[in-house]
Design a protein around this nucleic acid. Sequence first.
DNA 1: TAGTTATATTAGCAAATCCTAAATTAACTC
DNA 2: GAGTTAATTTAGGATTTGCTAATATAACTA
Lengths: 108, 108
Amino acid sequence: MHAFEVLRDPVRRRILELLADGERASGAVAEVIGREFAITQPAVSQHLKVLRDSGLASVRVDGARRIYALDTSPLQEVDAWLERFRRFWEPRLDSLAAEIARGKRRDT
Amino acid sequence: MHAFEVLRDPVRRRILELLADGERASGAVAEVIGREFAITQPAVSQHLKVLRDSGLASVRVDGARRIYALDTSPLQEVDAWLERFRRFWEPRLDSLAAEIARGKRRDT
DNA sequence: TAGTTATATTAGCAAATCCTAAATTAACTC
DNA sequence: GAGTTAATTTAGGATTTGCTAATATAACTA
């Protein structure tokens, strides 16, 4: 599944924001999301599965708990797709600053 | 409609790529997309409507033609959402370069 | 004006999405 | 082991999506 399909859902975007602050148990995620979006724990679990299957999150077992962590590779792809559009809003920079700004060619 | 919902569809992402190269008549878009994705002209027209309604494209009338142009504000929102995740893959830079890289605080 | 070209809109359908409720799995605790 | 806690999975349904075919609108062209 393409990252954009995963990111389409606001619940999943919010889960990723939570995971960006550090790993969390499934239940801790479900508690926050359930409160913010008024959905049940199984619904959150299903969203976590989508994140797992699409490579945006990984799980670690800790006793009866499942600890979720963010995996950012698919987000990097999204970032790369946006690259071709940035010229429409990013300020023009001189060439060295531009190279740094784009995070490119740091060692070529 | 949130930009991420619009970007979810690969046809619409491709249309935005085309428009990034310059404005195009509806028919010209339909020709390329129809060939690449094997869908009909009305289907493309419906996607163009979604892009219009979500503020990602604007139209100009030229006789019987409708000329579409890219509007990037919603893409900037996507870019902004990604910002909080960039620290996971962007190289650490010294503070001045980081400011430039993030395109922030250019005049404060 | 009649026909053609360019494009949008509508109706309807198949597939996908996201939810809840119920059932299941697995690990702790007494 | 029995009960409890943590989490996932499954079944089913309402809603949304994206398509095609048909139709409509509007502007050129002979």
